[in-house]
Amino acid sequence: MTKTYDVAVVGATGTVGEVMLEILEEREFPVGRIFALASKRSAGKRARFRDKSVSVANVADFDFSRVQLALFAAGDAVSRQFAPAAAAAGCVVVDSSAHFRDAEDVPLIVPEVNPQALAGYCRRGIVASPGGPSIQMAMALKPIHEVAEVRRVNVTTYQAVSGSGATGLRELADQSARLLNAQAIKTPAVYTKQIAFNVLAQIDTLEDNGYTREEMALVGETRRILDAPGMQINPTAVQVPVFFGHSEAIHLETRDKLSAVQACRLLADAPGLTVVDTPEAGGYASAVTDAANQDEVFVSRIREDISCENGLNFWVVADNVRRGAALNSVQIAERLIEEYI
């Protein structure tokens, strides 16, 4: 008889939490009992799992000793308050917020990239899932780094509003509808400027060095995931009026020369990556057309950098909510039950 695990999904009514429930069902994760949890504000709502309606309970009232796994998708404040208590109650926490990503005693995991680091979960009973931009970039860099050692990366990310949660989605939808009907938009609440039909050159707050918190997170997380503390990474994070799907223009320099053909083969053979790169109009992947609702990270426009002897350029897209958050957490949980709990 297959062993089952009782699982709590914290943030079950949110953008990522809803997709977590879908993926647990789709991948036939061996769930015994499912507990849908959220803040007091959302308690009493209903979630769906295995064609059944599940009542959403208040996370503040939940006894985490009732479950073996807790998947957190409710933001930094909730993770800060409840994840340590959940781990202390005996369950293993997989957290998709940013709160634990810098903690040296909490492993930061992308299962296709650094599964060996998952053994460190036992130090605090918590595993951190990286941000969506870090996940897709690390997955694309790993096969190149293993063969030719990536020394420097210039990257610009074009990030969908779903990275800001339901409020970002609503703001883009509302502004778009108003502008298309020749109406004035409301004062932006989620973003510093109008996001509809616009591109914003700042995500999150500015640090003392002039980079944003989001950009510096991409630097630190990528180095940790790849175990490459000396890798030089120069990021620019941009908010774009796309609902779902992050895109990245990556320019890298390697120690050893790789041709575009060699790079393409390495990327095509890597787990979780799909290469879409044909020399014709439209022979590339886009966030909306190709990546939305998909599990893969798509790589296109693979070419040698004409300005750098050992340089490569490529374009990477992924669904930031599914691939860049919910799926990664479920894959971590799958690894945990296969190898550790």
Score class of each variant (00 low, 15 high):
Asn58His: 04
Leu258Ala: 00
Asn328Tyr: 01
Ala140Pro: 04
Ile225Tyr: 03
Ala73Tyr: 02
Ala89Met: 10
Gln294Lys: 15
Val299Asp: 01
Asp174Lys: 13
Gln194Met: 10
Val56Arg: 09
Arg48Phe: 14
Phe244Cys: 03
Thr157Asp: 09
Ala237Cys: 15
Ile306Gly: 04
Ala83Asp: 04
Ala57Ile: 09
Ala73Asp: 04
Leu172Lys: 10
Val54Cys: 05
Gly90Ile: 09
Thr236Met: 13
Val113Thr: 00
Pro30His: 11
Asp6Ala: 12
Lys186Gly: 13
Glu253Asn: 09
Pro241Lys: 07
Ser286Phe: 05
Ala270Asn: 06
Thr13His: 06
Tyr340Gly: 06
Thr157Gly: 11
Gly11Ile: 07
Arg66Met: 08
Tyr340Thr: 07
Val155Glu: 02
Val155Pro: 01
Arg303Val: 02
Ser329Lys: 11
Ala117Asp: 14
Met20Arg: 05
Gln68Glu: 15
Asn114Phe: 04
Leu252Trp: 05
Asp6His: 13
Thr274Gly: 08
Arg170Gln: 11
Arg80Lys: 15
Ile126Trp: 04
Val56Phe: 06
Asn181Leu: 12
Ala184Tyr: 04
Ala85Ile: 11
Ala184Asp: 10
Val242Ile: 15
Arg66Ala: 10
Ala173Ile: 10
Lys45Ile: 00
Glu338Ala: 15
Glu280Asp: 09
Gln116Met: 12
Glu22Pro: 01
Thr278Pro: 05
Asp305Glu: 08
Ala138Tyr: 00
Gln81Lys: 15
Asp277Thr: 01
Ala140Gln: 03
Ser286Ala: 11
Gly220Phe: 07
Arg101Ile: 04
Ala281Arg: 06
Glu221Arg: 05
Glu309Ala: 13
Asp277Gln: 07
Phe35Pro: 00
Glu248Asn: 08
Phe64Ser: 08
Val59His: 04
Val219Ile: 15
Arg50Phe: 01
Ser79Asn: 00
Pro143Tyr: 01
Ala88Ser: 13
Val219Phe: 07
Ser96Gln: 00
Leu327Asp: 04
Arg46Tyr: 12
Ala12Arg: 06
Pro107His: 01
Gly163Val: 01
Thr192Ser: 14
Arg123Phe: 05
Ala98Tyr: 02
Asp76Met: 11
Lys257Cys: 11
Arg152Phe: 10
Tyr211Ala: 10
Ala184Thr: 11
His251Phe: 06
Ala173Asp: 05
Thr156Leu: 07
Val297Tyr: 04
Ser129Cys: 14
Glu339Lys: 15
Ala148Tyr: 02
Glu248Arg: 03
Glu214Gln: 14
Ala60Lys: 14
Ser42Leu: 07
Gln116Val: 14
Pro241His: 07
Asp76Lys: 12
Pro229His: 12
Leu200Phe: 05
Thr212Lys: 02
Thr13Ile: 07
